[in-house]
Design a protein around this nucleic acid. Structure first.
Length: 399
DNA sequence: AGGTATTCACATGAAACTATTCTCTGAGTTAGG
DNA sequence: TAACTCAGAGAATAGTTTCATGTGAATACCTGT
């Protein structure tokens, strides 16, 4: 088949997708499934803002893919309709503190906020204090009621500390013609550590926990999305149930379930099938699983990769792996790559980090007279071994 | 035999040091009035 | 003249090293039977 023919065929072949964007992470559905209770609870809390009365700050917890973000975005959209209709001085701003370059420092968040109010500020060159000043001036002069939604707020606190929250919350008490309410969204409940207890209590005047979806709920969500995303009858019966079951096994992560479905569809399409079958779903599942590891490993710094490579080489010998051996082999490897070797102390920490990333399993054992060390074991699926090994060899330039 | 003491091979902590990234400031530049 | 840009100083941060101290149990070494 020549190229021309291929493209012609590609053009005329109809896609099994009707609207792929429904399965993208930025899509907000017309109706939210299985989050009505949460939606009601939040609505009750923020509704008074419509009548210009002060509302409590709100804090929302929940694991990834439990619908936190989509619920809040949904709420924002619905509220904005009302606001527009009645022309209210209420402003809702959603910021994700994790997305690169967007809002992960005090300065950038303020810059984003000012941007929303139509004031451009340079990326650099202006003191943060000035930004605060202009920001509060705008708020106060225009008598704006601001609801600020900070998604992944734990990232912000990790990177930039609680200064911003502190200033906003305190300033709020001084404002007379306006107010600022914060809604924080976080993945982990133990955000507590780095944050001033006063801020914490003020921030979580109200709090809400999003529980993971169960398989049935996931099924509904997937079903409703699939109805819009795919053409009728392209999904094999039972596919959605299986997809939901896979995701439910992984802590009910809806985002992952939707990704899985999309990927299965894409695979089917690439294979020129006009139906998405369980086979495609299984391939998609495997691919997501291995991509998870491969992306993770690829994104590691060279030194980390060298440590991992050392562990991988040792793992082929079918003996127990200890820190000392890893370190001495690591020294050889790093010498070949031309990088400066790290101390054993550091490598020891790196090994720990790999453990918490889930790439390896580590047990602390004591062998009495023969010392105390870590027993290291790889914990990714064995099928990936050759792929990861050659990936690392390539990354390190050792072929 | 039973009980202590030693010892290994790192683990774990804290402080000190470095390199990188951010923030801030003032000087220079631009554009609008 | 106000607004903007940008380089460089200084501060903050992340990544490491250095130094010091801690650890669990197999083994070595007693001690008294």
């Amino acid at each position: 088949m020549n190229l021309n023919e291929f493209f012609e065929k590609y053009l005329t072949k109809d896609s099994i997708f009707q609207d792929r964007s429904v399965l993208s992470s930025s899509y907000i559905p017309e109706l939210l499934d299985h989050r009505q209770n949460e939606l009601d609870a939040i609505s009750k809390i923020i509704a008074p803002a419509l009548k210009n009365s002060k509302i409590s700050n709100l804090f929302i917890y929940g694991k990834t893919g439990t619908g936190k973000t989509v619920t809040l975005k949904y709420l924002k959209r619905e509220l904005e309709k009302v606001i527009k209709h009645h022309n209210l001085p209420l402003k809702i701003v959603y910021l994700n503190c994790k997305l690169e370059k967007q809002a992960d420092t005090e300065y950038r968040i303020l810059a984003q906020l000012l941007d929303v109010f139509g004031k451009k500020v340079p990326n650099t060159g202006v003191p943060t204090q000035t930004l605060y000043k202009t920001f509060f001036e705008i708020i106060e002069n225009r008598k704006i009621y601001l609801i600020l939604i900070l998604d992944e707020i734990d990232q912000l606190i990790d990177k930039a500390g609680d200064e911003l929250l502190y200033v906003l919350l305190r300033k709020n008490e001084e404002l007379s013609h306006s107010f600022i309410s914060l809604i924080g969204i976080s993945n982990n409940i133990n955000l507590t550590s780095k944050i001033d207890p006063r801020i914490k209590s003020s921030l979580s005047e109200e709090s809400l926990i999003f529980e993971p979806y169960n398989a049935l709920q996931l099924k509904d969500i997937l079903y409703n999305r699939a109805k819009l995303a795919f053409k009728p009858d392209v999904l094999e019966p039972g596919l959605i149930e299986k997809c939901a079951a896979y995701a439910a096994k992984e802590h009910g992560d809806a985002r992952r379930a939707i990704d899985l479905l999309r990927l299965a569809g894409e695979i089917a399409e690439r294979e020129n099938c006009n139906k998405v079958t369980v086979k495609h779903l299984d391939i998609a599942q495997d691919k997501m699983e291995s991509d998870k590891y491969i992306d993770l490993i690829k994104s590691q710094p060279k030194q980390y990769q060298a440590v991992l490579y050392s562990i991988i080489l040792l793992s082929e010998k079918d003996e127990k792996i200890y820190t000392g051996e890893v370190y001495s082999l690591y020294l050889d490897i790093i010498k070949k790559t031309g990088n400066r070797p790290l101390t054993q102390r550091r490598v020891s920490d790196i090994i720990n980090e790999f453990d918490s990333l889930g790439i390896i399993n580590v047990k602390l054992i004591s062998q009495g007279r023969y010392g105390r060390t870590r027993d290291i074991e790889l914990s990714y699926p064995k099928v990936l071994h050759p792929i990861i090994k050659s990936l690392l060899a390539k990354e390190l330039g050792l072929d």
